[in-house]
Amino acid sequence: MTPELRLMVAPARTYAVLARQPSPVGPIAALRRPLLAAVVIGVSMAISATRHVAPGLVLGTTLAWAFVVVLQLAIALLLIAAPSRRTVGVPRALDLFFASHAPWSLWLLAVAALPAPLGRPVMPLLLLAVVPLMMTNRAIAAFFREVLQYGSRRAAVHTAIHQALTWGAFVVLYGAAVALQPRIVGAFEAWFGS
């Protein structure tokens, strides 16, 4: 099995093996997994939105949505660069961290392959995201334990911080895009009367 698949099944054991094995990864090579994640997002978006691919279209969606990966990189760097007994250098740690992106990548590709939800709510598709969410949390906790050598409690706290930062950024950005404030006001009015 490939490391990405092994990480989905047994993240702690896989990260322990990967952290021990010699693999010189410099700052450039550390971007290979984030780059793949960006391409996955770009191509998935192109297929989902248009049911086809074309050079200009894929370039546009990949560049436009690359900010998601940049944000993930920044959050990961913030946590990885903190003092720890890490067994590998920062670039290699970043590389290994992004190996846990596979569940989300596969979810994005799966959603892109599904037929357009004409007249149906999109919510069931989004609920499927619970699967990569759980897998990623498990993998990230394993990453903090095995690669950064954190104890279980500290690894859990850092996983929680990582998820809080990631989903906090999502709520702020997506909330701004969908005009969350009037929706919240509307929900309150519906619940309590205006």
Binding site: T2, P3, E4, L5, L18, Q21, S23, R32, R33, L36, V39, V40, V43, S44, I47, R51, H52, V53, V58, D95, A99, A102, S105, L106, L109, A112, A113
Partner: peptide, 21 residues
């Protein structure tokens, strides 16, 4: 249709294969 299916399958393969270790 062929191009879209091929691109999708290639990406699934790349994600599953992962990076070289």
């Amino acid at each position: 249709g062929v191009a879209t299916a091929a691109a999708w399958l290639a990406l699934v393969a790349l994600v599953v294969l992962g990076a070289r270790e």
